[in-house]
Design a protein around this nucleic acid. Structure first.
Length: 202
DNA sequence: CGGCCGATCCACT
DNA sequence: GTGGATCGGCCGA
């Protein structure tokens, strides 16, 4: 079932980042449906977090969507090339978001392969934030989309990820964030568990 | 308005 | 394991 507004309105973005592991991220672009199991996330804790684009309440044309209520897509361009997909959380005016850093592809493989210009499935098609956006057809022009709509959404398919199968580390590429760079806000499904998921899908 | 740089990825060596 | 690609956002002037 599709995640509800209540899920996204959670005021603890770190908790949301953890619970998004194992959820299914779907996109429907021009009647091509693709999906992947979320395997890696990072929490960005709003005004208080020096690594967050909305640190100190910074409100610009780009960060504006992070101030909307939870359940909105925040997608922005990184390094001039990559669209990075985030899930906005918390209530309006509390600019928190979860960056989706990795998924395991489960639906629409033909479409995914075409998008990434590969001819066969390898384990590394969707294991980075820029790559998964490309594979699922997410573009920075999709920023502001409602995740309760029918273009990008997330479903709970009762796939449980135990704490034993989760690796928690500091976030990637946020060295500039001083003391906040060390916060344990990155959540990864261990590779052994990803292999289990893969087997279960065969 | 100009310049710097980033929540990255890939082709090379 | 390393450097180049590539461009919008942001900040300072």
């Amino acid at each position: 079932m599709k995640l509800t507004r209540a899920f996204y309105l959670n005021t603890d973005v770190v908790e949301v980042a953890r619970s998004l592991l194992g959820k299914y991220l779907y996109t429907n672009m021009n009647a091509c449906i693709t999906a992947g199991v979320i395997t890696e996330t990072e929490a960005y804790n709003g005004r208080e977090d020096k690594a967050c684009h909305a640190y100190g309440g910074r409100l610009t044309e780009r960060t504006r969507v992070m101030f909307q209520q939870g359940g909105t897509a925040y997608v922005y361009l990184c390094y001039g090339i990559h669209s990075l997909f985030n899930v906005v959380t918390n209530t309006e005016n509390n600019p928190q978001a979860v960056l989706i850093r990795g998924v395991y592809p489960v639906l629409g493989l033909e479409t995914i392969l075409k998008r990434v210009k590969k001819d066969r499935l390898s384990g590394s098609l969707t294991d980075g934030p820029g790559k998964l956006s490309k594979a699922l057809g997410i573009h920075y022009t999709h920023s502001g989309l409602n995740l309760l709509g029918d273009q990008i959404w997330i479903e709970d398919k009762n796939l449980i990820i135990q704490d034993d199968d989760v690796l928690i580390t500091s976030r990637i590429g946020v060295d500039y964030a001083e003391e906040d760079a060390a916060l344990p806000y990155r959540f990864m499904v261990k590779d052994t568990k990803v292999q289990d998921i893969k087997k279960a899908l065969l």
